[in-house]
Computed example of a mutant assay.
Amino acid sequence: MPEILALFGPTGVGKTAVALAVADRLRARGERPVAVSADALQVYRGLEVLTGAADVAEQARLEHRMISILPVTARFSVAEYAERAHREIDAILHDGGTPIVVGGTGLYLRAALADLDLKPPPAPGVRERLMEELEMQGAAVMHARLADRAPEIAKAIDPGDRHRIVRALELDAQGALDEAPPRASRLWTSDTRHPTRLLALTLDRERLKRQIDARVDAMVAAGAREEVLAARAAGASETARKALGFAELLQGDVEAMKTRTRQYARRQLTWLRKLPSPPVEPIDATGREPDEIAAAILGG
């Protein structure tokens, strides 16, 4: 019997609404659901609107952990996230609760659910040198360098993804770069720390596009740009600045934020549809209300 429900999918698909509906049904069965965020940026206080973290009303309906636990000035790694998330999940299970792990796709969700074979940190000065070269030469040149060194790895990294390019070059400098890029089958297996149902929400692309545009407009109306400006003034860390839309809203460019978010969601959908089933259970949310989806997940 699964002890954990892991609910994931592209940004804007409606994960929080489905998690709330699932939690309502679990409580009606006498269970005590608790959500655990598997979002790398929702950990930051002061970026709740920008990162789409559960709001006050949603948290009153369902307890959420791993949200707003760090100042925007803090740096945060996947290893630190994994340690904290494991501790929270284990505590929920120990107290007789049902964890609902809610996230997008990829590494942080996997980090919450399994023991990762994490790569070593960079040697002193390597990251700083590579970042200087990145600023001088640009992401395209650095990506081309990576393609010369590890073509298969480079193919799996977007040429504009500055963070992943630099991290791959760091690992290459230490001789710790894998020859093959991560595949869905390597990221998603049944080898989780606790019995887990992996539930992947998908949505028709045009519907998802409309939902993303509406979501961005709602974020801006709720003060997302003000959050970004305040975070910059406070000295937001490099990791906090990776929040989707941070750079665009610094420039006041809402349309650029929509474009980038749609592009990111398309990549997430493509990745999701390559995941093996089983263990992943794909759930098409198109034209379905959250409670209908929750009923399908829990069997009525």
Rank of each mutant, 00 (worst) to 15 (best):
residue 216 V to F: 10
residue 266 R to A: 15
residue 196 T to G: 04
residue 217 D to Y: 01
residue 264 Y to L: 12
residue 220 V to C: 11
residue 205 R to L: 12
residue 272 L to E: 03
residue 277 S to Q: 10
residue 221 A to F: 02
residue 247 A to Y: 08
residue 226 E to Q: 09
residue 263 Q to F: 09
residue 194 H to A: 02
residue 255 E to D: 15
residue 222 A to F: 01
residue 247 A to D: 14
residue 219 M to S: 06
residue 236 A to N: 04
residue 268 Q to T: 14
residue 203 L to Y: 02
residue 239 T to C: 05
residue 213 D to C: 13
residue 245 G to H: 05
residue 210 R to L: 14
residue 259 T to D: 11
residue 246 F to P: 13
residue 236 A to V: 13
residue 239 T to G: 02
residue 220 V to N: 02
residue 260 R to I: 07
residue 253 D to T: 02
residue 252 G to K: 01
residue 229 L to Q: 06
residue 240 A to C: 10
residue 215 R to M: 11
residue 228 V to M: 06
residue 208 L to P: 03
residue 270 T to R: 14
residue 275 L to S: 01
residue 197 R to Q: 13
residue 203 L to W: 01
residue 199 L to D: 09
residue 244 L to Q: 12
residue 200 A to Q: 04
residue 248 E to I: 03
residue 231 A to N: 00
residue 199 L to G: 08
residue 219 M to A: 05
residue 270 T to E: 15
residue 247 A to W: 05
residue 261 T to S: 13
residue 269 L to E: 13
residue 260 R to A: 15
residue 222 A to V: 00
residue 236 A to P: 08
residue 252 G to S: 09
residue 196 T to M: 05
residue 210 R to E: 13
residue 259 T to F: 11
residue 244 L to R: 13
residue 273 R to E: 12
residue 270 T to K: 09
residue 218 A to I: 06
residue 267 R to E: 13
residue 275 L to N: 08
residue 219 M to L: 10
residue 250 L to G: 09
residue 268 Q to W: 04
residue 258 K to P: 03
residue 219 M to T: 04
residue 271 W to S: 10
residue 210 R to K: 10
residue 260 R to M: 08
residue 205 R to N: 04
residue 265 A to Q: 11
residue 270 T to S: 14
residue 208 L to Q: 09
residue 252 G to A: 06
residue 266 R to K: 14
residue 195 P to N: 02
residue 218 A to Y: 01
residue 266 R to E: 15
residue 229 L to W: 06
residue 272 L to N: 07
residue 262 R to G: 08
residue 226 E to G: 07
residue 200 A to Y: 08
residue 216 V to N: 06
residue 224 A to Y: 00
residue 213 D to T: 12
residue 258 K to L: 01
